[in-house]
């Protein structure tokens, strides 16, 4: 039963909600209770931080052998994105011919379906990415 697990991650998945350390200003995704730089000095000083969703492709792979629930999106791109405000996140790049994806391209967050618990279960939503300023392939 993934309902509760996904519900707990909702803010993080819907809005790229992470943490910011009030001491060193480092921003982290997902949320952290302790800053990896400031250690115990950061306890109680980590604040909620919403990333803008803008970033750049650090590296990527094209998935040609998807899990069954992603068969209708195959081949699709999974990429490591360097978020504008810091930290890296793994996400799918949608709405493009996978052949045009490249390192350093600008991306923005989009809100998409991630998965569904069969035909009668809940639908999980969250962030994916889209190339910026790319219209047609």
């Amino acid at each position: 039963m993934a309902v509760a697990r996904y519900w707990r991650q909702q803010e993080q998945r819907y809005s790229l909600a992470g943490s910011k350390c009030a001491i060193c200003n480092g921003s982290f995704f997902p949320k952290r209770t302790i800053c990896p730089t400031c250690h115990r000095r950061s306890i109680g000083k980590m604040e909620k931080f919403l990333f803008s969703g803008k970033g750049k492709v650090v590296t990527y792979t094209i998935v040609h052998d998807p899990i069954i629930s992603y068969a209708d999106q195959s081949p699709y791109v999974l990429a490591v994105i360097a978020l504008e405000e810091g930290d890296l996140v793994l996400g799918q790049i949608v709405d493009c011919d996978p052949r045009i994806v490249d390192i350093d391209l600008d991306v923005e967050m989009v809100f998409r379906r991630l998965s569904a618990e069969g035909a009668s279960g809940t639908i999980q939503y969250g962030f994916k990415f889209r190339l910026m300023d790319v219209g047609s392939s």
Partner: peptide
């Protein structure tokens, strides 16, 4: 797209 529905479209327009 296969991962879009009325909810994802509503969220994008609202943002």
């Amino acid at each position: 797209a296969p991962d879009e529905d009325a909810a994802t479209i509503a969220v994008e327009s609202a943002r």
